Computed example of a mutant assay.
Amino acid sequence: MNANAGWIIPFIILGGALQSCGAAMNGQLNKHVVNPWLASAISFALITFFFAGATLIHPNPLPSQHDLAELPWWAVVGGLVGAVQVYAGLTLVNKVGAGPFVGFTVTAALISSLLIDHFGWFRMQAHPLNTGRVVGSLLLVGGISLIAKF
């Protein structure tokens, strides 16, 4: 990690904390809009307007033809994959609670991330599984089991 990038970890932590808030906010959005598809569209419309505005303010760099030619077909599906999580938050966070919802989300994300790292999927640099990573995953599974039970 770049020594001048001391903001990276705090920003990731902020993003994680805000994800919990976002799940609860989206749950209320769905509760009051009633239709989960409309609530999802509202949520994503705001995201789209935000990033379109940010692109207008900071239009550079733009991709080259070479960049676009090298783009894997599955790279553009990331937002749709993220939509599954948003829809789950909209429809399920009020049923299970924010703690278990985020706990299951984080645990599932971490375990799948370890597999992505281990196998180098999606062109990620491979980071093999080891005892520490497996034990850490098991501790997360144990922790979310306790949170969900109590």
Rank of each mutant, 00 (worst) to 15 (best):
L115N: 00
V135N: 10
T55V: 07
K95F: 07
V134C: 04
P72W: 13
Q28T: 09
I57S: 05
H66V: 12
C21A: 14
G132Q: 11
I47D: 01
V77H: 04
P36N: 08
A69M: 10
A3V: 10
A23F: 14
G99K: 05
L140N: 01
L90R: 06
Q85S: 14
S64H: 07
Q65R: 11
L80Q: 05
V86W: 05
I111T: 05
V141M: 10
P36Q: 02
R133L: 14
T131V: 11
G89Y: 02
V93D: 05
G120Y: 12
L92Y: 07
P59L: 09
G82P: 10
L38G: 01
G82F: 10
L90V: 03
A54I: 08
G97E: 03
I57P: 03
P63R: 08
L68S: 09
V77Q: 06
G99Y: 09
I47Y: 11
H66L: 13
A108E: 01
F49E: 00
I111M: 01
P100L: 03
D67H: 12
T48S: 13
F150N: 11
V96L: 11
L140K: 01
I47K: 06
S64N: 11
H127P: 00
V86H: 01
L29R: 04
G27E: 03
K95L: 09
S113Y: 04
A69H: 07
V106E: 00
L115I: 08
W73T: 08
L14A: 15
A52S: 09
G78W: 10
L90F: 03
V96G: 04
D67C: 12
P59W: 13
L46W: 10
A5Q: 10
C21I: 15
V102D: 02
N35G: 08
A52M: 09
P36I: 03
P128E: 08
S137C: 04
N130D: 15
P63L: 08
S112A: 15
I9E: 05
Q125P: 06
